[in-house]
Simulated assay, not measured.
Amino acid sequence: MITKIKKAIQYFSVRCYELKISIKEFRRGSKLSSDAFESFYKNGMLVEVHSVEKGLGLKNTKPGHSSKPVTNLINKMFGYIGRGYDPTDFAFKETYRVIAAYIEYQKEFDTSKFPEFAEIERKFNVLTQQLDSNLVASIKDDLNGGAHIVPLKELLHGKDFDVQSFFKTRHSIRMYQKMPLNQSDIQKAVEIANMSPSACNRQPNKVYFTSECETVKQIDDLITGSSGFKGETPNYIIVTTDRACFMKEEQYQWYINGGIYLSYLTLALHSLGIGNCIMQWKAFYRTENKLKELLGISSHEAIIAVVGCGYYQGDTKCIYAQRKAVSDTLHIVGVSDAE
């Protein structure tokens, strides 16, 4: 009887802790603060403009499609400017460019059969006149919008690369040269990682990097997961995802988007000859506020992971970390016609 009571108490304690974490996630996902609402506003535009761009990428895009969301987005851009938000931010420029591509596409057809088009074009022209001409020119020069045809040869290019061997040569590295990474290498790794897919192309992730000795030492003292090799890591990366980029029905999606980005980033580092080790971050770990304050991370950003990294010191001792067999992971449902 006593054993059953102890188990019940233990179970209740675990569930209470999980509830505590969920409540904290709920509070940190609030859009009430001004900076969180700004992120929410911008990413609302990205979600909606992504649906417009997807329409332009369909096999048979109908003339006049998406007139309501396009009208709504133009109104949101006026609101964006009215709120004093930065028009050079990616969210605004991406929205502007896709709508410009949308208007260009509609002009390929008889717009007289699309009564809403004249008003859409008029309002967009009014918006354009309110923007700096250099900004408008740079948006058109630097960004692409809409859809394009990708040659099959390009799509199949991945088959020319031995990705399995590449993945096999990536290990969790815990010993590095005692030197900072070149900023050009970090910039290149982030450029590669930014190609990772994200929900509605929101790209809600941020990367915080430091090789400054005192900051690295402080991170060493604040993080978990580095037991046994503290003081051995010369560079740290902290990957975060902004909770304010997601809507109410997307609870915890920030961890999925952040996890995808993290995978791309660590493989990008490996491709540049940079060893790395992912250290899992416990949600709302006791030192989280100190770590965020140290690196200037906002309260509504979720810490996805801490990544220690550095140049290889030479032949390196690594654990095997044996992987499961395919049969342990893959479950094929039904039988394909090919069989």
Rank of each mutant, 00 (worst) to 15 (best):
E154K: 01
A147N: 15
E121S: 10
P151V: 12
E191Q: 05
A147W: 15
R170W: 03
C200M: 09
M175V: 10
E154C: 01
D162W: 12
Q177A: 07
F161E: 03
I120G: 00
K159G: 10
H171N: 08
T210Y: 05
V136I: 14
H157F: 12
L127H: 11
Q187V: 00
R122D: 12
S133R: 14
T169Q: 00
K123V: 07
H157G: 03
R170K: 06
V150D: 10
H157D: 13
K206Q: 12
K206C: 01
G158M: 03
D185K: 02
N201I: 11
C200I: 09
L181K: 04
C200P: 02
H171L: 04
R174I: 12
E121D: 14
A137T: 14
T169P: 00
I120V: 15
L181W: 01
L181A: 06
S172W: 03
Y176Q: 08
N201S: 10
K178A: 11
S138C: 02
K168A: 09
I120W: 08
S172T: 15
E154F: 14
M179W: 00
N201R: 05
L135R: 08
S198V: 05
L156E: 15
N125V: 06
I186V: 15
V150M: 11
T169R: 04
H157E: 15
Q187S: 05
S184H: 11
I149P: 01
A147Q: 07
A199R: 01
M195I: 01
R170P: 04
I139C: 06
Q164T: 14
K178V: 09
M179T: 14
I192V: 07
N144A: 11
L181G: 00
A193I: 02
I139R: 00
D132Y: 07
Y176L: 03
Q130E: 11
N182G: 08
K188A: 12
N125H: 05
K168F: 09
S138V: 05
K153G: 13
S133P: 01
K153Q: 12
Q177V: 15
